[in-house]
């Protein structure tokens, strides 16, 4: 590649109070890649994303995004630098309409023309949201909320989007919808870091993946190779 990666996570440790969750985690993502982060419950996947998004500061190591160390950058600035985080609990504005949620997603975008253009393309990507523009986010179904959260994350025209467990709690046909929209996203040029428990599906759509076990990176490599890895097969794919 030659150029430095879009995101570099260098040897980070992270803790909640006295409880250390991440141990020496390193991840790098190049522009345009679709990377998966898989692991079982409690392995530290969400903590990794929260640390990258700046909601938790690492106790050791650093996160570098677009060549800038994020150590002293507040969370709201990180999102303005082009890093969107779609969290597991979505953090939607439930008493606002779909449209207002999307406008909030573009909070840092000052240019009205750019904003309108992004809104159009996001509605193109998620036609269901376009139908429900005026509905309050809190009254939408689970799948629609996930879509809204992803759509809101896209409204800032991010360079990198972190997506946490989009399949959680969704009916199988909706999971397929969400994964399909992620695939479309990558084709449109967005770099994605996807955290998932659905290992098989994740390894199918991502280019590369990391396996997180008990707060440490256990394995990494191209997703195709990981699918044939003996450890992954026995521990995650149940083969």
């Amino acid at each position: 590649m030659g150029t430095t990666p879009l995101l570099q996570v260098n040897h980070i440790d992270a803790s909640y109070g006295f409880l250390q969750i991440l141990w020496d985690v390193s991840i790098h993502i190049a522009a345009g890649e679709f990377v998966g982060l898989i692991g079982s419950n409690g392995a530290g996947k969400t903590t990794t994303l929260r640390t990258i998004a700046g909601l938790i500061k690492p106790s050791q190591g650093e996160v570098v995004f677009r060549d800038q160390p994020l150590g002293r950058v507040p969370a709201y600035q990180i999102s303005r630098m082009g890093l969107s985080y779609v969290s597991e609990d979505l953090n939607l504005f439930t008493d606002m309409s779909v449209h207002e949620n999307l406008l909030m997603g573009a909070y840092a975008v000052k240019d009205k023309a750019v904003q309108a253009q992004t809104l159009d393309s996001v509605y193109g990507l998620f036609p269901r949201l376009a139908e429900r523009q005026n509905q309050l986010a809190g009254t939408m179904s689970g799948g629609e909320r996930k879509m809204l959260a992803i759509a809101r994350g896209l409204m800032s025209n991010p360079k990198l989007i972190l997506v946490d467990e989009p399949s959680l709690g969704l009916a199988p046909n909706l999971v397929a919808d969400v994964f399909e929209s992620l695939r479309k996203l990558q084709q449109s040029g967005v770099t994605i870091l996807l955290v998932e428990q659905r290992v098989e599906a994740t390894l199918e759509i991502t280019d590369r993946a990391y396996v997180l076990e008990q707060g440490k990176i256990a394995l990494e490599g191209p997703s195709r190779e990981l699918r044939n890895n003996e450890h992954v097969k026995t521990a995650y794919l149940g083969i």
Binding site: A53, L55, Y76, N91, L92, F93, R152
Partner: peptide
């Protein structure tokens, strides 16, 4: 409505 969400969108 959601403090973390607001931070996430750059507020």
């Amino acid at each position: 409505q959601n403090e973390v969400g607001a931070q996430m969108v750059g507020v």
